[in-house]
Write a protein that binds this DNA or RNA. Structure first.
Lengths: 229, 229
DNA sequence: CCAAAAGTGTTTCACGTACACCCATGC
DNA sequence: GCATGGGTGTACGTGAAACACTTTTGG
């Protein structure tokens, strides 16, 4: 079956920059291409948009098909439409970025006969297409947005210690933060709930665990509160 | 001539939200549709992306063809891909927003046998397609971005009085600002050049004119300076 | 001389920043 | 008992916010 149009049309794809965080650094999920062009190169997960799905749906579907990830934080980033970004033909791609709790998705099994793997953001392989540019823009967006929206919590487990949260900001913003000032500030926001639990399996004093209270955050936001680190 | 593909493809368009500012309020440039669907309704200027032009190029071309505007500040906003946004078929649109010096483009002549006109942002007609949603997002983006990037100057003539600049922020942020604090802050940034000129044709004391020094701004930015209102 | 907007300083308060020690726990 | 990170308070300086009067100009 084929499809005909009066004027030529670009192909439309979605690509996802998936960020995850572990104890060391910020990581990105890449898949190895098993078809030309760029066979063997690492690339962002993504694929063609179908006519019966929205762009968001397409991004979620591709993410699930290629990496097994579901129910992640996902946000549209930018649309890339340079003429020669795909050597085969004109392809316009709507890029997304996703934040996942790396602890939940430790080892990403290969699917689709392709390999998927996490890479530290400052130790990346060469990427296919213009994916380096897309990834750079996603990284920049994350750095910017994490400071004035509470999206960082999407990278942490539901229950976390304040040190983990501080580490998250230090890794993403790429600068050290003062422990006392950080705690003071984040606790003063009154968007965290102190749990009756502490860390387990640590070789030192266990830290108290907290959880992000989305409901409280939304209530405060309506009253003019602005999150900011 | 026709074009065939193995899989069905969405049509790809660009749409532009053009902001302008006058002495009263923030305005948006709309065109009246002369073809179905939504014949007679007002809509954002825009049209189909050709295969030999980038998305940015397409936005500039459509803007020029439909409104006569050239060399304006233009930035990609978001890509809208809901299934039913166009009743005819699947159309994905890459939305842009533009900032223009309304004083330079006073009366927008009709082109393309269509009418173009400026509307106050809080007195808009009903719009075609999902253009109300696009416009709302553009407005939100402008409100956010104007506070931490010096894009407001794109809405003013090259030489302006501080009162005009303050008025701009008051209109966009929709709240009054203190005159003394505003002047102190903006002058302390050291990104304005005080000219040896004053306003003319005003029925009261003429204000000194200033111009935005882009070069100085970029230099300061490299040294870690952050614009913020 | 009157109307209208230009231009100008000081005080107060909140918040960001810098900084060091004792405590609890696991090994 | 020692190593490791958890947890806590204060002093200082900068910058935001509040606030009112005199000056200049055109009509």
């Amino acid at each position: 079956m084929s499809h005909e149009y009066e004027f030529p049309r670009a192909a439309l794809t979605v690509d996802c920059v998936v960020f995850g965080l572990d104890d060391e650094d910020l990581k990105v999920l890449l898949i190895e291409r098993d078809l030309p062009p760029f066979e063997g190169r690492w690339a962002l997960p993504g694929g063609f948009v179908r006519l019966d799905e929205t762009l968001d749906d397409a991004a979620r579907r591709e993410l699930c098909e290629e990496t097994g990830l579901e129910r992640v934080y996902l946000e549209q980033l930018y649309t890339f439409g340079d003429l020669d970004r795909d050597p085969r033909e004109r392809v316009v791609t709507v890029a997304y970025y996703a934040l996942v709790r790396l602890s939940d998705h430790r080892v990403q099994a290969a699917t689709d006969a392709r390999q998927a793997a996490w890479f530290a953001i400052d130790d990346l392989p060469r990427l296919a297409f213009d994916h380096e540019r897309i990834l750079a823009m996603a990284h920049e967006r994350l750095r910017g947005k994490v400071r004035y929206q509470p999206i960082g919590f999407e990278l942490l487990p539901p229950k976390f210690a304040l040190r983990q949260l501080q580490h998250l900001y230090e890794v993403i913003l790429d600068r050290p933060l003062d422990k006392r000032n950080f705690r003071k500030k984040i606790l003063a926001m009154d968007i965290l709930v102190e749990l009756d639990e502490v860390e387990t399996d640590v070789a030192h004093r266990a830290a108290r665990l907290y959880r992000f209270d989305k409901t409280k955050y939304r209530r405060l936001t309506k009253q003019g509160f602005n999150f900011e680190i």
